[in-house]
Design a protein around this nucleic acid. Structure first.
Lengths: 343, 343
DNA sequence: CATCGATCATAAATCGTTTCAAACAAATTG
DNA sequence: CAATTTGTTTGAAACGATTTATGATCGATG
């Protein structure tokens, strides 16, 4: 295995009988190369199977790499975002890399830091548990787009769904069906802290507000759970053991799947307990699942995030905040509230 | 926005009043630093908020980065693999990055190439459409682990499910239920080319063999589809318009979801058409889906892939092939074959 | 015919880290 | 006390690309 060292730009230059700089110019399509030279250099590149080391490029300029921090690979909604992002990068020189965090809290910061250490040319992060100050500092060094973060920052851009409107759609739908005892199943206190700018924080706050305004303040009931379907299943089971709401509004679809599972395991049907999710992941529309959910065009969000990043790289400095209009997909998991037994 | 340049190792050295080499040693926990020096350097690092540039490190040695090429982010089975991989990296100095391909064919090669250009210290790739020769060449430059690829190579490792056994479990189960007219829904010809070493190729070949051996050669019927649930749905609908098999063995669960959807849309139930998938993704066990499927421990595969990579980095050179035992999860989507109308 | 301009090629500097050999100091040995 | 050992610390040379400043070549112009 007498493993030959990979060709460098130097080798290409020698092979083509020109200088390093000339080769560099050809590679970068820079100004000032004769067709003859271009051809010779390209031939040499071909012969030697040369590929520029990104690390060396990064030392002087850009890494041609954009990074996305992803809190939880398992969530199909994030897959949509990635799909939109990769589509937006088609035909550009940039490569997308994903840094998985896969845990609450510190992990997100770690993953974003790892991307920054690798000097990516731009970072997309999905609503991590991070202070705005930390993000502002990061964003002075590298272009940053925050997904689903509802703060208006000075130095980074945001792409969000309109969670205020989305929650309104959900709550009005449930009210129209006659529901009053509506439980909200959401993430941990930490995630929904008002200052976090997290979508779950907005959804929770608006749930509370709508219940209040509708005169159902005494029915407000918030249940906490983790990040996975399984944790939602367990916490829903615990809830159903205690009391029987007529509807459960779940923070996102991934969790809602767990809730649906728990409801079924508890021997209940949608006619007894309605369930609403958020994100409208693909499986939600499956006839056997038929989960009512808020659609918020993940592909469009991913695509826009990348576009904003590319704009920043081009030089834009004014912050931009982009919001996606949500729409409610009404399906079989929400039914008219069962008539209350007179107390 | 008078943006101060980030601190370098030089700045740290100056601040601590020592040499660059000394700082480097402290960072890397290398041999030969006095406690006093260590303390002073660490203090300087703290003060300056210094973080080493990975690009500069990469120039000299390792990038402390492992890359996974992922053909399709939307597939939940791959999410399991990632989960296992990140778990295996906990506590190490390595960062995992994912390069999404999200298309058949050339994209996979491009994504793997992008990882190689970034000089990752190791690459995990999921059965891309690539010749063994290309892989062998790649693997002489960087440690490589192939997931789901059934060839025994000289210079890279493999982690696979035992698709021969898995397919046997499926076919015997269906035979026992009395099925004969079993259709196999799988990926494109290109993907299932015998030489590709792809799991789908094995499953297809073994399906054919089992049908033959059982004396149902005339019932062999292979239907091709794309990579997504939606394409499987459409191709299943087309199939059902033409004929009515008693069972459909689908190449993986993601596609099987599309098949289930098509079967339901066609007004059919599992009692009329049984469906079997492969991978046992989480949703398969959801009571409303209840898809019979082959479990092959994705987390274990991801974890093992990373471990093999780390071993290679440590210096191992003998190729290793690791195989995961599959097990069949029998659920509601497979029922006894309906009695044949006498012809 | 000399000069100017335009077009390219060349050489050298640069980026931030690791590594390797050499320098140094203090402690141990003969 | 000189010589050797041991353990720290330093200086300088890589690593592979881009960028800048300088130099060469050629054709056209006054």
């Amino acid at each position: 295995m007498a493993q030959a060292r990979a060709a460098t730009i130097e080798d290409v230059a020698r092979e083509a009988g020109v200088s390093r700089a000339a080769v560099s110019k050809v590679i970068r399509n820079a100004y000032g190369v004769s067709p003859a030279m271009r051809e010779r250099v390209n031939a040499a590149i071909e012969v030697l199977d040369y590929r520029p080391r990104i690390a060396a490029r990064t030392m002087r300029g850009s890494s041609f790499t954009l990074g996305i921090e992803l809190p939880h690979i398992g969530n199909p909604f994030f897959a949509k975002i990635i799909a939109g992002a990769t589509a937006a990068l088609q035909g550009t020189d940039y490569q997308l890399i994903i840094a998985p965090a896969d845990t609450d809290g510190e992990e997100g910061v770690r993953a974003i830091g790892a991307l920054a250490d690798r000097q990516v040319d731009g970072i997309v992060a999905i609503s991590p548990l991070v202070s705005p100050e930390w993000l502002e500092r990061l964003a002075t060094r590298v272009p940053v787009v925050m997904l689903g973060r509802h703060d208006h920052a000075h130095s980074y851009d945001t792409v969000t769904g309109d969670d205020v409107e989305g929650t309104r759609l959900v709550m009005e739908h449930l009210f129209e069906l006659g529901h009053r005892r509506i439980v909200h199943l959401t993430r941990s206190e930490e995630v929904t802290r008002a200052s976090s700018g997290n979508p779950h924080a907005i959804r929770l706050a608006r749930y509370r507000a709508h219940m209040q305004e509708a005169g159902f303040a005494r029915h407000i009931r918030v249940v906490r759970t983790g990040m996975t379907e399984e944790s939602a299943r367990l916490d829903t089971l615990a809830l159903l053991d205690q009391e029987l709401p007529t509807a459960i509004f779940v923070g996102n679809d991934e969790l809602a799947l767990g809730t649906l599972r728990a409801v079924a395991e508890h021997g209940l049907s949608p006619a007894e307990v309605s369930v609403v999710g958020y994100d409208d992941i693909d499986i939600a529309s499956h006839p056997a699942i038929s989960l009512t959910s808020v659609n918020q065009a993940g592909e469009a969000m991913g695509e826009r995030a990348i576009r904003l990043l590319l704009e920043r790289i081009q030089g834009r400095t004014e912050p931009t905040n982009f919001s996606v209009e949500p729409s409610l997909k009404v399906r079989g998991s929400t039914r008219p509230a069962p008539t209350e037994p007179t107390p």
